[in-house]
Design a protein around this nucleic acid. Sequence first.
DNA 1: GTAGGGTTAACC
DNA 2: GGTTAACCCTAC
Length: 511
Amino acid sequence: MTSEPVYKPISLDVISRPNPVEPQSIPQRHPLNGTLQLSQASNKDLLRLLYDANGTLPENRPAKRSKLDDGKSMDLPKLPVRQNTKRLRIPPTLSGLHQPPPNAGLLPSISTEQPEARQTLPLQSPKDPATDKPILEAAMEVTACADPEPALSKTGKPKRNKWSDEETACLLKGVARFGVGNWTKILNCPDYHFLKRSALDLKDRFRVCCPNDYQRSKKQRPAPRPNPTGPGTSGSRPGRSDRKSGAELQDLGINQPFAKVQRRNRHEYSAAEDAALLTGFERHGSQWAAIRADEELELGHRTATDLRDRMRTKYPDLYAKAGLAPRPGVFPKPAKRGKKDEQPKTDGHAEVQRAPEHALALDKPPLLPTKTIEPIKQPQSSLLPDDDLFFGALFDGNDDGDDDDAEGITLDRGILDWPLDNLHSKPPPVAYEMSKTTMTIDPIATLNLPRPTVPQHANSGYSALPSLAAITAFNDFDMAGQLELPSLMLGSLESDGRSGGHFLGFDELLS
DNA sequence: GTAGGGTTAACC
DNA sequence: GGTTAACCCTAC
């Protein structure tokens, strides 16, 4: 009887042992509740779980951007994203601060008020040799100039923000550089500085300063520069007009007539065009190019996008019935000043213009899957107070001056100490509690997830999240009471890159 | 080519 | 200054 030599493990064996946290071919079990987890799962596997409890992936997934509303699921409120605006870049260490933290109930409410520290600046400060003022004081003046608090008049209304000569000079230089009509470019150009102006403000100001140039840009014909000897041209009120003379423009280095930004002239739609568009829409659906190419309709002078826009504007109900998203329009528009009681017209469906009854025979089945859109989904409103459904101002880099109350959120430094000071306080028993000043959210309770069967952590009072397998094991639970996984986790299941999400790897998700 | 959404002119 | 709608940009 020969005995095998005893194998002694070497360090290489230890190194080569499978990493317990990496995906393996052997099905792993949940470390807490022992639930079998999927191995080597792909995003497709995950989609199967999410779409169908039986594990079948629907072949007809929703088309791009056309969300199926099965009435069983609800959407989390999405952050409005504005294109062409510079979104604030959040440092990696701060990313996620705009999302509810895992234990939001432990954190104090976030105040939008200015920190008190700003009012308790040290009195002594080194002096700026240029101005002989304390540097801090000078800095505060600059800050106040760049972002002034809206001064209130006696009537309580914000005072008119008069244009300074410097602002006007910036505007005129910008117009000379970018052309009449490129107001946003001028506004966003770092070379020019404006005090809480919108692109509309720039246009209005230019119309005041250079009415002839503004009108000429509309008519697309050159005109001689106005009298360079004095302000105001034809019909101006001497002494009061802000019109800029040729000499003043030349002082700013503007010697050439203002260029006009390339933009097609507007053409009103005639009744015949609208009728043809409706006919084309009935005939071709949202194939705008086909409508345009339909010679019988005589809409070839409009672009496909023009036709889409007109349909969307003129007949939003028909447009929506075709499964197309309505024009965002007024969202996120700030509430009107002094008309807070009025219901803002935000959804575009409550007051849509009706198409002529004769225009479309809607008794026939629609060309595209119909989609009923509820103005407000009640479960959403139970998640967050109405006031908090608007997040746009956080990322709105284009302050047009109307968002006077849209101050940036200031995090109190004490926010980091608060959880430690309240470590032993119990979480709120309900999903959220809201008073006039504070709101706390327990995201776990809010998600209404199935209760896990695992034992709770000793002394912690909190339960571990159930495994994904445990969640998806519910085949017959009431979907109406559940939430879709938040888009922050899954990126976008619609492959809509605009949402900025991405598919998380399965191991990422489990982690 | 289409959809979503931003920009701008015109009007009040 | 607010509203509306035509025009425009860009991701997909």
